[in-house]
Design a protein around this nucleic acid. Structure first.
Length: 547
DNA sequence: TTAGGGTTAG
């Protein structure tokens, strides 16, 4: 239930059997005072004092001159994060071998002491020794962790010079480093040049594609990988993430079925990733099912589920869950609070959000400071204008709108996707490229006439929701979401739900339009927009017109 | 004797 650190996990992996062996070995050492009798148990000891005692004896017997023994003690120190003792011992070793360097560099890396890690690696290079394939992945991983692309490229040149790019571990570390630094071209190049690829290399490349905004490619890679390699749980977490990013329900179903078929147990991370995937692919029910099934949950699992209820318009469920979480003794983090706050704003439960988090003025202050930090980020303007709109400060809403025009905020083109027969169809505003374009516009015209009879009035005067090129064009009737829905009505059997995804927020007129569509056609329409899910049914939307 | 891959919001 508590967030675990890697170190703690490592310590927990020692079984009782190991501790017994360790204790026996230590009592043997205490009797014989021969450090060799304890060397193999050194990293498994429960406390650092045992390492220190053995180290003392190693010095007394002058066995510290034996490089094998000194390295063992060094490794034990770094394993227990006793970096000062390790560094003291290390500096005393006159004839260091690659293992000594590797252990010291790895020790700094594990302790997140990146600067000393770099410094020690530089000393290693200056010592005249050739770098080795055990040390390089460690230092490359440091670049990945602190997103140091410059140093990463320097290391890549070292790797290349000695031919280590052909080594599986080194290349995998490089691919992952480039991916985390968003350098997908370089990541792909290293991956393509690998003579041999194992499970980890494939996994990092799958993660790389997702990380760099190409989840479709990630899923294709997963299919290619399976031609020769059986995935494990970590690989599946990456695949689940790709699927979540893609947001396509039938892909999510395939991935979910595969995990069940392979009988992967739901640990905290895989379970949480699955919750996120189902929710982002439109099925809040499956997401909750996974959450309820999980035997272990941490703050991330709870936050994910709370956020999911939130963006599906189920604010009260999100709040219930938040209270349940507190009852279970889990401490919320800042992301939990943001999720709860947004869950309330998505559902019109703003008064309740305010109670938890402060007040509207606080939210306003936060948004204003965000604007100062990133004046070109359109999302911050929208956030601020929504805060003003909810507080009824219409003059301020207008001011934000002016500010956006003044700042010439970059406009993002709007797109809507729809899945029909497991194929994705993409529409932009006024799009006429679809093979059934004629039928789609015909359907739309026909629909609009019926809708107007039922009371739909086209509305161009709505509150600012997003900066959308479509608005400027004034092509209200051919907004991408309207085209996609019209196509959905043509291409799917009567009564089946229509699911579309839009990259921006759905506009006010389209929102009203879809409500009428759900009423007239008796279809459930699920719209995933940039911010949340809207479930339209019988003329109403799950967002209760807050979005 | 050592090394590379995993979850949440905006």
């Amino acid at each position: 239930m508590i967030e675990s650190t890697t170190h703690r996990q490592v310590q927990q992996t020692f079984s009782n059997q190991d501790s017994c062996i360790n204790e026996t070995a230590f009592s043997q050492f205490s009797e014989t005072r021969d450090p060799k009798s304890y060397l193999s148990s050194l990293v498994k000891c429960r406390n650092i004092s045992q390492v220190q005692q053995v180290h003392g004896q190693v010095i007394v017997t002058e066995q510290v001159r034996d490089l094998f023994i000194a390295n063992k003690v060094l490794y034990a120190y770094t394993f227990h994060r006793a970096l000062e003792s390790a560094a003291a011992l290390f500096s005393g070793i006159t004839q260091k071998n690659p293992f000594s360097w590797s252990v010291m560099i790895g020790g700094y890396a594990k302790a997140d002491d990146y600067m000393n890690c770099y410094i020690t690696f530089r000393e290693y290079m200056r010592s005249g020794d050739r770098p080795d394939d055990y040390t390089l992945p460690v230092v490359i991983k440091v670049c990945r962790n602190i997103k140091d692309l410059v140093m990463g490229r320097v290391l890549h040149s070292v790797v290349y010079k000695y031919g280590f790019h052909l080594y599986t571990f080194v290349a995998a570390a490089l691919v992952d480093m480039y991916a985390k630094c968003k350098a997908i071209v370089e990541a792909t190049k290293v991956f393509d040049e690998m003579p041999k690829r194992d499970l980890v290399s494939w996994t990092v490349m799958i993660g790389a594609c997702t990380e760099c905004g190409n989840p479709e490619e990630a899923l294709d890679l997963f299919d290619r990988m399976r031609e020769g390699i059986v995935p494990d749980k970590i690989a599946m977490v990456n695949v689940v993430n790709a699927s979540a990013k893609l947001g396509v329900m039938h892909k999510a179903k395939i991935v979910d079925d595969y995990i069940k078929k392979m009988e992967f147990s739901l640990d905290v991370i895989l379970g949480t990733a699955l919750i996120d995937m189902h929710a982002k692919c439109g099925s809040i029910e499956f997401a909750r099912e996974v959450f309820d099934k999980m035997t272990q949950r941490n703050v991330i699992s709870w936050s994910t589920m709370i956020a999911a209820h939130g963006y599906h318009g189920e604010g009260s469920k999100a709040l219930d869950l938040f209270h349940m979480m507190l009852d279970c003794g889990i401490s919320p983090n800042n992301i939990t609070f943001v999720s709860v706050l947004y869950a309330c704003s998505h559902s019109g439960l703003v008064e309740e959000a305010c109670r938890i988090h402060g007040d509207v003025e606080l939210a306003e202050k936060a948004a204003v400071s965000l604007l100062e930090l990133q004046p070109q980020n359109a999302g911050h303007y929208i956030l601020l204008s929504n805060i003003y709109a909810k507080a009824g400060k219409w003059k301020e809403v207008a001011k934000v709108r002016e500010l956006m025009t003044h700042q010439r905020i970059k406009k993002i083109p709007g797109w809507t996707w729809i899945e029909v027969d497991n194929k994705i169809h993409k529409f932009s505003v006024g799009d006429q490229t679809h093979p059934l374009s004629k039928e789609i516009y015909e359907k739309l015209k026909n629909l609009r006439e019926k809708l107007e009879v039922a009371g739909y009035v086209p509305d161009t005067n709505f509150v600012l929701h997003d900066i959308d090129e479509e608005l400027k064009l004034g092509l209200l009737h051919s907004h991408s979401e309207k085209l996609a829905i019209a196509f959905g009505l043509i291409g799917t059997p009567e009564g089946t739900p229509i699911r579309v995804t839009k990259n921006l927020r759905v506009c006010g007129d389209c929102h009203a339009f879809i409500k009428f569509v759900s009423l007239i056609t008796k279809r459930v329409v699920v719209v995933r927009d940039a911010n949340r899910f809207h479930h339209f049914k019988e003329g109403a939307c799950s967002c209760r017109d807050y979005w």
